[in-house]
């Protein structure tokens, strides 16, 4: 009986020691991890769509430097497009929370079969054609040709889909996938 009692005491003591030691153990660990705030790696803060015709360069820029939440993003269009003109378009995606800014466009180029850009516009007469292709011969949309029509105004929407159905009928709805970028600019042709 006596030995059992002392066994019991031993068990309780053991439990106490276990409990205290884990407390100490985890407290130390906690301190080590005190400040592991992380950078959002996949963040895209900036979309630049640069349209060039000789010396005529118009840049459409969306910028949201603090990511989702916080302050809303800003849209800037550097100028107006000339009517009945052919522009070459180039997309640039950046993460400007990094210094120097991280070029996300390179990631898209590496995984071009998993991505596709879609362009839609409500401005009259504008035609946008994707001029680049991935390894399977499907369009990507990093490089485009934009031909303006008569004077007018409207919106231009750029959508980047991750893991879309390729090939598709050219609309983002048909391509499915998940949307990584969707920005809409007000543009003017005059």
């Amino acid at each position: 009986m006596k030995t059992l009692k002392s066994n019991k005491m031993k068990t309780i003591k053991l439990l106490a020691v276990l409990f205290i030691s884990t407390l100490i153990f985890t407290s130390c660990e906690d301190d080590r991890n005190d400040d592991d705030g992380e950078d959002e790696e996949e963040l895209i803060t900036t979309v630049n769509y640069r349209l060039t015709n000789g010396n005529d360069v118009v840049t459409l820029t969306f910028q949201d430097l603090d990511g989702e939440g916080g302050a809303e993003g800003t849209y800037t269009v550097s100028g107006t497009l000339a009517p009945n003109t052919s522009y070459t378009g180039e997309i640039e995606l950046l993460n400007e929370t990094e210094s120097p800014a991280e070029d996300i466009t390179e990631e898209i180029e590496e995984e071009d079969d998993e991505h596709e850009f879609f362009y839609t516009t409500s401005a009259p007469g504008i035609e946008i054609t994707k001029t680049d292709m991935d390894g399977d011969g499907n369009p990507i949309g990093l490089k485009t040709s934009l031909v303006t029509g008569p004077s007018g105004s409207g919106t231009l929407t750029i959508v980047l889909k991750h893991e879309p159905t390729k090939p598709n009928n050219g609309t983002s709805a048909d391509a499915g996938g998940s949307t990584d970028v969707e920005v809409t600019f007000d543009i003017q042709v005059q």
């Binding site: 884990t22 660990e29 906690d30 991890n33 005190d34 592991d36 992380e38 959002e40 790696e41």
Partner: peptide, 21 residues
């Protein structure tokens, strides 16, 4: 009871649930 949550670093995202005790 003592409880500790650790948002393990290396995910490349802001943790959904932060470190807490």
């Amino acid at each position: 009871r003592y409880q500790q949550n650790d948002a393990i670093s290396g995910t490349g995202t802001n943790p959904l649930i932060p470190d807490f005790t």
